[in-house]
Design a protein around this nucleic acid. Structure first.
Lengths: 226, 226
DNA sequence: TATCTATTGTCTCATTTAATTACAATAATC
DNA sequence: GATTATTGTAATTAAATGAGACAATAGATA
């Protein structure tokens, strides 16, 4: 067995489409089971490498911002019945893969990516992967809904200006877009003038040319992070 | 083997003696090796139960405030040489305990306890356990110094008034003691009047009788958390 | 008993930071 | 050229914090 036994990772991959915050969820072949992208850690592999690999396989992205935030370890979190269905749905040998039916602790991660850059690809066990609004996540297997909730909570607490926008937005963006990211994450509206003044005072933004959208009003500046 | 392989926990146990922030460190028999209190997780045990048990064994305390904050996973973090010395120093059979020489990922925790309540007890592998000032921690085995540094960083960032004092101080305390806890954690001096005003305005403290210390000055009130 | 010392609790006033409102600038439409 | 929707920034208010002043007081000192 090339993997570390009883240990896995799962990753809540956040994206922002300009309106709402979304996460990537995959569905397993012939089971109707939804789950977070996750996987196992090779015996000589760092956790970070393992997760990066998993995210790259499903999104095509490298150098993604990522953070591990909690170990989920309830002894009864594994659902042997579901796992068996997934293996059978993929015509996997149960004997050979019986290690997958044991207890697993999983290291929860979240990743922030630029929605536009992604071309989601299902892995060999699943037949679809897609974006779901953060407030419209389907029922997931095992304790994955709990992992999503916790990831969002941590994201809200860590909303330290720079990291967030830098990873969820394209290189250049308007002040309004930046504000919308914050509003989507915090799930509350912010005052435009206070937000703008605050962001500018932090001295983390660089101002570029204006963006002419063809709309009948003053054109906003584009910004990037310094 | 009754433990989950390749996985351990370690715990940075913080205490406050009225002056400085301290942590508990143990020394292994006949090796001169220092380490954080840690251990393994039984196959049917929750991580939390495992850590609680470890803390209770070494401090005698139950219901301790505790938080897991990071998995440390560098593939080369285990030091086979040191581990062998510990086993040999304790006359343990190398063959039987060879699983301990493999790669381990460890879940880093920190705990906050009331210094006065503790009677530190070494476990069966170590011959001493004692308090060390946070800015005078000896060289520890493996990556334990890194774990300590990270724990302190997390503690500083999480210094959300209530949790801290509630766990590091006795039930009743003076405003000065509370300020000293903050100063020890943040490693900076705070303005007395501003601190007092801030704490009182948070509406988390209950004021009790005065504490007469027999000193030649006005006696301070005792407070507890609401 | 009166005075002195160290510390505490609270006020005041200055300074900084943030919330709120107001308004001019402007890109495209009518 | 007037109109509309939105943007950038200035002006005004309000809240939080910094810095200092001062009276209160428990015990020590004389």
């Amino acid at each position: 067995m090339k993997f570390i036994p009883n240990l896995s990772y799962d990753c809540v991959i956040f994206g922002f489409n300009g309106k709402t915050l979304k996460i990537l969820i995959l569905e397993y072949h012939n089971t109707g089971l939804f789950a977070l992208p996750g996987g196992f850690i090779k015996k000589d592999q760092s956790l970070k490498d393992a997760v990066n690999k998993g995210v790259e396989d499903r999104t095509g992205l490298t150098n993604v911002f990522m953070d591990q935030f909690q170990v989920f370890d309830k002894p009864d979190r594994a659902n042997v019945f579901d796992m068996r269905r997934i293996l059978e749905g993929n015509n996997k040998d149960l004997e050979e893969n019986s290690w997958m039916l044991e207890r697993f602790l999983t290291v929860g991660h979240y990743a922030l990516i630029n929605y536009e850059d992604v071309d989601p690809k299902p892995d060999h066990l699943s037949d679809s992967i897609g974006w779901y609004d953060i407030d419209n996540v389907p029922q997931l297997m095992m304790d994955h809904n709990e992992i999503v909730d916790k990831a969002l909570e941590v994201l809200r607490n860590n909303i330290s200006e720079k990291l967030i926008g830098m990873n969820l937005l394209p290189q250049k963006f308007t002040m309004k877009q930046l504000q919308q990211v914050f509003e989507a994450i915090l799930d509350q509206t912010l005052r435009r003038t206070s937000f703008q003044r605050k962001m500018l005072s932090l001295d983390i933004l660089e101002r570029h040319e204006k963006l002419f959208e063809g709309k009948a009003h003053k054109a906003p500046y584009l910004y990037s992070f310094k």
